[in-house]
Computed example of a mutant assay.
Amino acid sequence: MIRYSLRCPEDHGFESWFQSSDAFDDLLAAGRVACPVCGSSSVEKVLMAPSVRPARKAAAAPPPKPLSAPASQMEEAFRALRRQVEENSEYVGMNFATEARKIHEGDAPERAIYGEAKPEEARRLIEDGVPVAPLPFLPQRKVN
């Protein structure tokens, strides 16, 4: 496994793990590597320091501080939207298409949900008149 520091044209920095350098190149060429903030698939590697394990007797370093301040107003708006969605709706994971269809047809209680769907599942929901919309962020479990 290899970890790359990446950056999009909007100057959003993020990291991601890949099986190999070739795997990264293949995914990038296929448009499958995207910025988690703006969704741009035009990303590039940035210079990063290699990860070096400390000696066995060395004291463990404190964990890195989490990113605290957003880099822009847009990032803060995305964070606020994420909080709003997560606090006011139920995460149904990969069952999103099934659950949205059940709610639409009256087979499940009406409530706000969010989750994940394959593109073809989302297209079928839209074609069938189920009111759905994509969210501009990835689920927490998929965020770098």
Rank of each mutant, 00 (worst) to 15 (best):
R32Y: 08
P63Y: 09
P70F: 02
V132W: 11
E99K: 14
P50Y: 07
S42R: 14
R3P: 00
S72N: 01
G106W: 05
S72W: 03
S21E: 13
A49T: 14
Y114P: 00
P9W: 00
M74L: 15
A58R: 11
A97I: 07
E10W: 01
E127A: 14
A69K: 15
A133D: 07
P66V: 08
E76Q: 15
P63F: 10
P119I: 08
L6Q: 04
A97F: 09
S20P: 02
E90A: 11
P119H: 12
L135A: 05
P139I: 03
D128C: 09
K102W: 11
P70Y: 04
L67M: 06
E116I: 14
L138N: 04
E105H: 07
P50F: 05
A30R: 15
K142D: 08
E127T: 07
I103S: 04
Q19S: 07
H12G: 04
K57W: 08
E121A: 14
A61D: 03
A112Y: 10
Q73G: 15
H104F: 15
C35Y: 04
A117V: 06
L138G: 00
S72P: 03
S42T: 12
K45G: 01
A23H: 02
Y114C: 08
Y91I: 07
E75V: 13
F96G: 07
K45I: 09
P139Y: 00
E121I: 08
A34D: 00
A55C: 07
T98L: 15
L67D: 07
H12L: 01
S68D: 05
R3D: 05
V92T: 07
C38R: 04
G31L: 06
Q140A: 12
F24R: 01
A108T: 03
Q73D: 14
R53E: 09
A69E: 12
Q84S: 11
E121Y: 12
D107Y: 06
E105I: 05
A55P: 02
L135S: 03
P54K: 06
G13I: 11
M48R: 15
A69G: 00
E105F: 11
G13N: 10
R53Y: 10
E120T: 12
E10S: 10
A60D: 01
P134E: 14
P70R: 08
E10H: 12
R123D: 12
A61C: 02
A97H: 11
A60H: 04
K57A: 09
A122T: 13
F96N: 06
S40D: 00
F96L: 10
G93P: 10
D26L: 05
